[in-house]
Simulated scan of single mutants.
Amino acid sequence: MFRLIALGILSAAFFSSTFILNRAMSLEGGHWVWSASLRYLYMLAFLGVGCCACGKARALGEVLALFRRHWVFWTLAGTTGFGVFYSLICFSASYAPGWVVATTWQTTILASPLVLLAFGRRVPSRALLFILVIFAGIILVNLDLAETATLKDVVLGGLPVLIAALAYPLGNQMVWEAQRGGQGLIPDIGDPVLANPFARIALLTLGSAPFWLLLILVTRPPAPSADQWLNTALVALLSGVVATGLFLHARHLASDAYQISAIDSTQSSEVVFSLLGEVLFLQGALPGPWGTAGIALTLVGLTFYLRAQYAGS
């Protein structure tokens, strides 16, 4: 269990680059659609080149073959877990600081049990109190933003993140269910290639491609700048490949719903990493009293949540 938690926290450190760099691109005038879609273009390139460079071109062919066999499922899972999730995260960065988006994003901890229940899985009830503590911290952080921003900024900086927080675990759980026999509309995909976390990333990324193309056609954003190309490449590498690989690997090692919820909850540590990064690299302001209290509550809730999970696992 300790190993799974450590992997989750390490992934959160790399995930925090998303919030910092997205905010940087927003402040420089970069359009959120490019911040979102270019990340996944780079991810496909990194994964493809990486496989070929490591002599695993055959594995890449197996991934493509698996995608063709279940393209409807991968398109649905990729659109949900990658497309909807990340487009809304980037959209919110145009209206709220990165650490606020990162803190609000922790509602994914609340969404994870709901997703598990939707798939008929048991969820831990012993830690519900601590989940409420985390949620209270998120509310305080957004109250801190409300003191210096307009109502529009608060709504557009927060509401999309709440939807993203549900879409991400939903997409990941769809893959988890498919690996374990499937149910309902989810097919049984017991292919051994899914044991590789990077194969799962590639499949979800390929599945999200139609969503990104449609989003670009609908919004018609202005061309990205050179800095935006560079920053999205960094996000793709640090968050899209390294962080997502670590996170999905930890989730793959989970043996039950208790461990899945615990791994998902480690993402709360993104708040601290995002705040430090924004202050150090973007000269962002430190949070006020409400924001400080909110971050503290979020981390306290996370700590006791993990202890409750560990004690019952």
Rank of each mutant, 00 (worst) to 15 (best):
V141C: 11
G83H: 00
G157H: 09
T18F: 04
L238I: 05
V271M: 13
V115I: 12
Y86S: 04
F15A: 05
L217T: 08
M174E: 01
G312S: 13
S274N: 05
L282K: 00
I109T: 15
L145E: 07
S92V: 03
I201E: 08
L7Y: 10
W99C: 04
T244Q: 12
C54A: 09
Q179D: 11
A93G: 03
V100T: 12
A93E: 14
R121H: 14
I263H: 14
A296P: 09
P124T: 07
Y40K: 02
S94Y: 07
C54L: 15
A254Q: 02
S112D: 05
R200L: 11
I186H: 03
N22A: 14
V84S: 00
A136W: 12
T244K: 01
P169Q: 07
V33P: 09
V72Y: 13
L297R: 06
A262S: 12
A167D: 03
R58P: 00
A226V: 15
T79D: 04
V154L: 05
G288C: 09
R180F: 07
L10T: 12
I5A: 08
A167L: 02
D227I: 09
G301L: 09
Y42F: 14
A257F: 13
R251Y: 15
E177C: 06
G184M: 07
E270P: 06
P97S: 11
I20D: 05
S125L: 13
F281W: 06
A250I: 05
V279S: 00
I163H: 07
V175A: 09
I138R: 04
F304E: 14
L140A: 13
D256Y: 07
S255C: 06
R200F: 05
A195L: 10
E62H: 01
F130K: 03
Q259E: 15
L88D: 04
G184D: 06
Q259G: 13
F73C: 10
I20A: 08
A243H: 04
A93Y: 04
L217R: 13
A57F: 09
L276R: 03
T298N: 08
D188H: 14
Q309Y: 11
T219M: 14
A226T: 10
G29K: 11
I9H: 00
A178W: 04
T108P: 08
P124D: 13
A257R: 14
Y310C: 08
W99V: 09
I20H: 08
T108M: 15
A202V: 12
Q183K: 15
S87A: 15
I201N: 12
L110D: 11
C90T: 13
F14C: 01
W229Q: 01
I260L: 15
V115M: 07
I295W: 01
V49R: 01
A111S: 11
T18G: 01
F82D: 00
F15W: 07
I9D: 04
L151T: 12
A226W: 10
D256W: 11
A149C: 10
F198Q: 05
A285K: 03
T80P: 06
I89H: 00
N142G: 06
T232G: 05
I295N: 12
L246S: 04
I131Q: 13
G277H: 02
G48Y: 05
G284E: 03
C90N: 13
T75D: 03
Y168P: 00
E177N: 07
G50I: 05
Q228H: 03
Q259F: 10
P187K: 10
V161Y: 04
M1F: 04
G184Q: 06
